[in-house]
Computed example of a mutant assay.
Amino acid sequence: MKGDMAHPDTSSRPITAIIDRLEDTTTRDQVTLRCMIEAFGKSSFTTAMCVPALLVTSPLSGIPLFSSACGILIASIAAQMLVGRDHLWLPSFVMNRSIGNDKMLAALRRLHRIGERIDAITRPRLRPLMTGPFRKLYQALCVLCGVLMIFLEIVPFSSSVLGMATILFATAIIVRDGVLACLGVAIMCIGASLPFFALQAM
């Protein structure tokens, strides 16, 4: 399927392979989101979507407006997957956002543990849930996750939870794992409900 193929290096251990590739981009004092996403090519939509989703689950999510920037990228990439674009386009004002090399490397080291755990439980399962209509549903849910990140910027942990849901959806699409997709739906519901818990606690 055009515009929705994983990078070849991510086929056997998708998340850790993406994190390894991101580490290769940290050769400058400042690393831009453009540099990180374009490392996967302009037609690898699913792997590209994993980049902001991974970053927003790291301590980098504590940087003001960083979660919103990741949400915009996730929503933009997923929307273009949904409509079947062949090549990725993303807004420059978000792509030019930079992160200090030291912060980036520290975040990637933490993400390695997450990646290894996800890869360890991922395999092709419940393939009927990964057919065309369901894949479109997961892409639409990724759009929703990205949009919610923008509006829930000030709600603690919400963006990280929604980022994890996006990672699970993307990995499920890459590996054709219906169980992982169902887990993504459950985690997305938790992330979307966090504002209500926060209001009750006030």
Rank of each mutant, 00 (worst) to 15 (best):
V161L: 02
P124L: 08
G132E: 07
R109E: 09
N96C: 13
L141P: 08
T166V: 11
R117Q: 08
R135C: 12
G100L: 00
D119K: 09
I167Y: 07
S98G: 03
D119M: 11
F151A: 00
R127V: 13
M104I: 00
R125T: 12
I118C: 01
R109Y: 14
F151N: 02
M95D: 06
R125L: 02
T166Y: 02
F134L: 06
I154G: 07
G100R: 02
G132A: 02
R127H: 15
I154Q: 04
P124E: 03
F134T: 01
F134Q: 00
R135E: 13
F134Y: 10
R135L: 08
R123S: 10
W89V: 03
V161I: 13
F151P: 01
Q139V: 07
A107I: 06
N101D: 15
L144M: 11
Q139W: 09
H112M: 07
P91I: 04
V155C: 11
V143C: 15
S92V: 08
V155S: 01
P133T: 08
Y138P: 03
E153G: 00
L88E: 09
L148T: 00
I150N: 00
R109G: 11
S98K: 12
D86K: 15
V94Q: 06
V147A: 11
R123Y: 13
L90T: 06
I167K: 01
N96L: 06
D119Q: 04
T122C: 12
L111T: 03
L108P: 06
A106L: 09
T131F: 04
I154F: 12
I118K: 12
V143H: 05
L162R: 02
L129G: 07
S160A: 14
R123H: 07
A106F: 04
V94P: 02
G132L: 10
M149D: 05
M95T: 10
M95W: 13
K103A: 12
L152K: 00
D86V: 12
M164E: 05
Y138H: 01
T122Y: 03
P133F: 05
W89N: 08
R110C: 09
L90W: 06
P128I: 10
L111D: 02
E153M: 00
A165F: 04
H112G: 07
L126H: 08
L162V: 02
G115I: 01
G163A: 07
P133W: 04
I121Y: 08
F151M: 01
R109F: 07
